[in-house]
Structure formats: structure tokens, C-alpha cells
Design a binder for these strands. Structure first.
Lengths: 236, 236
DNA sequence: TTCAATTTTTAGATATGACTAAATATTAGT
DNA sequence: ACTAATATTTAGTCATATCTAAAAATTGAA
């Protein structure tokens, strides 16, 4: 059973891995959790001993399967609590993060699964980020979603356009977007709903206007398998 | 800002003080929190240094005003979470305690006040125990409540009977209960709603049947002052 | 490819909170 | 009032998690 501190480090590593780097450096983790590199170095060694990360001195860490599951579970708890705080307690956007940061460490599978049900099994939190399911994987999004409504950090494929008119198709050409291209939503901007998107093939970053996002159908390019029965509780 | 451990000790001391003892012994606290007397001794000294208890070596502790407020606040958080778990997440009675025990340590006045509002400002938790208000005092119960519905651990007075018939009044005589007597509900038994009650004047313990509790009006004998505006946040 | 800059780790302290074992204070019983 | 039983504290360790300062490894630039 991990301590609060351990959970914070695992969460930080998960977030950094999502930013693309294969291995995560000690310094970047230190900065993320707000600790010194020295403390972080010690913690990385402990995480390695417990089998949550692969740690090679001087070369950073990578989450193991076990560590990844654990970090996804923390993310799940965090995002479900955010939903609750916003939808049911009437908190504002900017207030929820810190409180969810504390609630996420309350450890009870039963509690979180019931909270999930209470909230209606949401797929997205109020920031538009995907909420992992009880199996520690992101839930499949419905086949064919508008890009404007797709969760962040999922591998997506462009599968269609809403508006087949010439003007829009030409505009897509200008942007270099075509059917079948794979992409990931990195950031959803609150101001107007425009998206920062990374294209997998070219590794290009683009800012897409809402007018575009609302006219593109996307699907998951490697949907997680559907799990009918939850996995047995882990024993650690 | 107290640690989780400190909060657990304060809570234990509050509970033990409610059992009547003026000063609480180190061993009883140790047993309550599940630590050794040695660890507890060290903790009592720390709590004393921080001004949460008056601690005299070998003679036990007593909560200070500050410590009492803090402990009442923990109790408030615990009982509000219990309400939430039972009423909204569909937990069973016996499952809620352990989870509430974790949730109670999440420290955010804002969160708890909003949860309170979400739950409709309940006066009693599902065990029939009183829930402290945001000012750290038990809320006044409505003038004249049925004894059957009164919170535990409050100083009450018998102010009337529902059924003025001879048979009931004679029965009250047999039990030695009269108007004006002061009493406290110690325990509400889930089985049939019967109550263990302590009479203040005689210090007598009695088990009252539901048929009696449902026919007696009680009121608080020393109602807490009504606080219209919450106290300013404490600075420690 | 060598050496200076950067990153990361080690060494050595500190604080909290827990433990066991030993010492000491209080209390009850005669 | 004295002693045996009980309660409590002290002394000495340990584990976690943090820090600063110093040492060592890696990286990058000439």
C-alpha cells in the first residue's frame, strides 16, 4: 500500500510520460512534485525496489506495468472527485484541483466504484480529460466522436467529416489533414474550445480552431479491449 | 496544520472525554488509537507543546479550547462523510466507518461546508449522533424534539409528553421519569431504536423502550448560542 | 576528445511517528 | 505506611521522507 508521497511521485511520472519522453529524468520529476533532485533520487530508488518503476541510475525512470496501473488508478480517483466537486458541490473550475489532490489519496476501491456509478460513469472530467475505468485503462470512447469532444491523450484516427462541402475540405487540405491520419489531443483551451493536437505521423503540433474540431469525426486507433469483469484485486 | 496522526489522537481524546472522565489517561488513548502507551506518551507531549491539550505527566490529558474545536471539526467531517456514503453512495451501515475515517482527514473548510449544504445541513448522522456545525459546536435541535429523535451526548430536559393518558403517565412514574428531569442519550440501539439514557440528577443509567422514547418531548437544557456568521479562519 | 557545464547521486542531518525494553511514578491492598 | 501491581515515561532504534552540501557521472561544445 503506497504512501501519499509515493502516489504523488507515481502520478508525476505518469504525467511526464504522457508528454512523450520515453524515460523520465529525475530532475523533471523533482520539479513536478516540488522536491529537490536529491530527495527525488532517493524516492526513485525506493519506487524501483517496490517494482513500480524501472530505474537506472543517471538515466531516469519508466513506469512498470504495475506502476502504470497504480498511477492510472490515482488519475481515476482524481478525475472522479473533480467531477463530483464541480457537478454536485458547485465548485468552480479553478478550485477543484487542490481538493481533488487530497481526496485522490483516500484508498478504497469500493468508494471509487460507487462514486463512479453515482456520477453516471462519466468518460470525461470537466476539463475534457479522459477518466480511466476500474480496470486502469481509459474507457473506449463511442465509435466516431467529434474531435471537439474527444478526450485528451488518446490515440485517435480521423474517420470522417461532418460537413462535406468544398470549402471545408479545401481548408483541411491547407491544414494538411486527411482521412486516416492519427492524432492526439494535447490541450483543450477553455477560452474558445480550440485544441492543440499532435499528429502521430509527422509529430507535428497544430492548433485547431473550434470550427474545424466540430466538423471532424475521430475514433480510437487502438481501442482498449472491453473488460466485462473487473480484474481481481491486486495483492500488494 | 495537524497531521493525520495528530487528528486521530485528538479525535480519540474527544471520544474518551465524552465518556465522562475529566482527565483522559495515556493508556486509554493508546488503546483507542491502537498504539503503544510509549508512543502515546510521546504524542501527548507533542499535543501539549502545540497547545491542543493540557498535559501533566502521569496524570493524563484534557483538550484545550483550541484542541476541542479542532476535534469537533474532525467529528463534523467524519459524520458528514458518513451521511454522504450512506445516503448517496448506497453504502451499508457497517462499511461507512472505515472510509469516513480516511475522508475526515481531507482538510478544506470550503469542501466540508459545501458537502454540508449538499446533504441539506443534517443535524444527525445515520447513527443518530449529532453533527457539529461549522462553528465547532453541536447544532441546536429544534425546540422540543421527540426523545426518540434527539442526538446523543447532548444535555436534554424532559419538557412534555405526547400521550397524556393515565397508563403512560403511571408508567413514567414507575420508571421514575418526571417533567424537568435532565438527561443525555448515550446510545441508540439499531435493533429496535431503544435508548440508553443517563439521568443527570441521579447519574442513573436506564434503557428506555421505543414506546417511551416516542412519547417524550425533550429540549436542550443549555442550547449553544446561535452563530449567524462563521468565525474567521484560525491561523494555525 | 577533452574539459566545463549540467545532471544526478551520495553523504550526512533533521523531523515525525512508530516500536521494544527498561526505568520510574502512582495506586491499592494489607 | 509499605510493597506489589499497574500505569506511565524514558532511552534507544527504526522507517519514511525531507533537506543541504559535496562528489560523481553524463553531456555538449570547442
Amino acid at each position: 500500500m503506497p504512501t501519499v508521497s509515493v502516489e504523488n511521485y507515481l502520478k508525476a511520472i505518469l504525467h511526464l510520460e504522457k508528454e512523450g519522453t520515453d524515460r523520465v529524468s529525475t530532475n523533471s520529476v523533482a520539479e513536478k512534485v516540488g522536491a529537490t533532485p536529491a530527495s527525488t533520487s532517493a524516492m526513485m530508488a525506493r519506487l524501483g525496489d517496490r517494482g513500480w518503476v524501472e530505474y537506472e541510475r543517471y538515466y531516469g525512470v519508466r513506469l512498470t506495468e504495475k506502476g502504470h496501473r497504480m498511477a492510472m488508478d490515482i488519475l481515476r480517483r482524481h478525475r472522479l472527485w473533480e467531477c463530483f466537486l464541480l457537478d454536485h458541490l458547485g465548485f468552480e473550475w479553478d478550485q477543484v484541483h487542490d481538493i481533488a489532490e487530497e481526496l485522490e489519496h483516500v484508498d478504497s476501491k469500493e468508494l471509487i466504484n460507487r462514486l463512479d456509478a453515482f456520477l453516471g460513469f462519466p468518460k470525461l472530467d470537466p476539463h475534457g480529460d479522459a477518466i480511466p475505468g476500474p480496470n486502469g485503462r481509459f474507457r473506449s470512447i463511442a465509435a466516431r466522436t467529434l474531435l471537439a469532444e474527444a478526450p485528451r491523450n488518446l490515440d485517435l484516427v480521423v474517420v470522417g467529416v461532418v460537413d462535406g462541402g468544398d470549402a471545408f475540405l479545401r481548408h483541411l487540405g491547407v491544414l494538411g489533414i486527411a482521412l486516416g491520419m492519427r492524432l492526439t489531443v494535447l490541450e483543450r483551451h477553455v477560452f474558445d474550445g480550440s485544441l492543440h493536437v499532435r499528429f502521430a505521423e509527422s509529430d507535428d503540433l497544430q492548433l485547431l480552431a473550434p470550427s474545424v474540431c466540430e466538423r471532424l469525426w475521430v475514433d480510437q486507433s487502438n481501442p482498449a479491449p472491453v473488460i466485462l469483469f473487473p480484474e481481481p484485486e491486486s495483492t500488494d
